[in-house]
Simulated scan of single mutants.
Amino acid sequence: MERRLVHHSRGRSRHEQEQIWELDYESLSDDEGDKHDEDKDDEATDPTDPTNPTEGSSKPGQKRKGTRKRRSKAWDTFDELPIGEDKKVCLSTGDVRQMILSSSQGSIALRNTSFDPKNFRDMITSIVVRHNPPLSFVEYEGIRDAFLYANPKATLVSRNTLKSDIIALYKYEKKQLFNMFKNYDGRVRLTSDLWTSVATDGYITITAHYITDDWVLHKKLLNFSYMPAPHTGITIADKIYKLLCEWNLEFKLFSITLDNASSLKDMDDSVVKVRESVKYIKGSPGRKENFIECIEQVALSRSKGLRQDVPTRWNSTYIMLDSALYYRRAFSHLKLSDSNYKHDLDDEEWDKMEGI
C-alpha cells in the first residue's frame, strides 16, 4: 500500500506556518484494500437512510465508495479537516518535527525522536560509574564536539557537576538497596577485605552475598571505608559491626569471611624463601636470562612463568607457590650456576610447600 504525505507551507514563514499535511485518498487505496472495505461497507449500510447509496442508485460498472477504516497510527498525531470534495487536510496535533515516519514490515509507524536532557545527563553519569573514565573527560573539547554534532542539545556538564551527579546516584542506589534488605527475609553472607594503600592509609570493604526468591545469587558492595590503625581483631570486628548496623543487617547475618592475611608474611620460613627467590630472579634482566637457561636445561616449559605474590592476599601466595613448585628443578640448577643466589630450599622445605 503506497502512502504519500505532502507538506504545504501556504506561503508562511518557518515559525508561523501551520504544519498542514495534505492526504491524497486516491493514493491510499489498492485493489485488495478496496475490496475488503466494500465488504464492510455493505454490512454497515442502512437501506432506509437516504444519504446512503442503495443497489438501485448505483450505476452499472460504477464502484461504490464507502468510509475506509483508519488503520494507520498517523491518525494519533493528525486531525482531519475537509477542504474539498476529493481531498482533505490533516492538521498536526503535535510537533511533527520531533516525529519520524519509519517503515517496518511494510507498514508506516511514527517514532518519537525527542531529546531528553535529563536522560542524557543520567547516561553520562552511568558511563563514568561503569567504565571509570576520568571525571575531566566531560570537559574534553573533542568529546563535546562529538556530542554537539550528534545533537545540538547534547551539552555536557562540568567535572564538578558530574561529581555531584555521581554522589547523588550513589545515595539513590544505596536507598534502593537499603529498602530491599529491609524487606528481605533470608540470610546474608558477608566477605571483607582489608589492606593498606601506598599512602599507608588503611581501607576495609564489605560485600554482601544473598539469594533472591528466584534462586539467583547476587553480590553488592556495601561499604568501602577508611580503616584507622591498629588493624587488630577487636578493631576490625568493631568496624564491621558498626557498618552492619548502618544496613540493619546485624540480625540477618549468616556468615562472614575475612581476608586479613598479614600473618602470611611470617607464616613459614619456606614461604619467605620462595618469595625472596622470585624477587631475586625478577630483580634484573640478567638473572631472568640465567633462570630461563636453567629451565631449558631441565626441559621445562617457559609458558607457566614465575608469579610474584602480594603478601596480604592468600590467593596470590598460592599462585606463587604453585609456579615455584613447577620450577623446583630449575631452582636447584640455579643454585649450582649462580653463586649469588642465597635463598635456595632443601628437599624437606619443598615437600612442605607441596603440603601448603
Rank of each mutant, 00 (worst) to 15 (best):
R275Q: 10
M267C: 10
Q297E: 13
S262I: 02
S263V: 11
S277R: 07
I211D: 02
R313D: 03
E43G: 02
S92M: 04
A299L: 06
H36W: 01
L264S: 10
E246A: 02
V272P: 00
E85M: 06
L334W: 12
D24S: 13
K171P: 00
Y172D: 14
R328P: 01
S192L: 07
H36Y: 07
I256T: 14
E2I: 13
S303Q: 13
I240H: 00
M267I: 09
D37V: 01
D31F: 06
T212I: 01
R10H: 13
D34M: 09
H7A: 12
I166A: 01
L264Q: 10
K288S: 06
N340T: 15
Q98A: 14
I292P: 00
N183I: 05
S225K: 11
V157Y: 04
V89M: 12
G283N: 12
Y172A: 08
M267S: 13
H218M: 01
H8Y: 11
D165W: 06
R111K: 14
F78S: 01
T207V: 15
Q176W: 03
E55R: 12
L148S: 14
G142T: 09
L194W: 03
E289V: 12
G11T: 07
W350R: 12
A44N: 13
K252Y: 02
D24W: 08
F178Y: 10
M123F: 07
V128I: 13
G305A: 08
P152R: 14
K65I: 10
I83T: 12
R97N: 14
T45N: 07
N119I: 03
T191R: 04
F181K: 09
N160V: 09
K163L: 13
L81I: 07
Y184T: 05
G84I: 02
K73I: 08
L110Y: 04
K63R: 15
P285D: 03
E141Q: 14
Y203F: 15
E22C: 06
K163P: 00
L135C: 03
R97K: 13
I167M: 09
G56W: 08
N183Y: 10
V298G: 02
S301Y: 00
R70V: 10
Y25N: 10
I234H: 05
R68C: 08
S164Y: 04
K239Q: 11
L244H: 01
S72W: 03
G106E: 05
T48I: 05
F254Q: 11
D86L: 14
G84K: 06
K279A: 09
E289R: 13
R130F: 04
F120D: 08
E32K: 14
L306P: 04
G202L: 07
T312M: 05
R121T: 08
S126P: 02
W195M: 06
G286H: 08
V138G: 00
K239W: 06
D351K: 14
I204L: 15
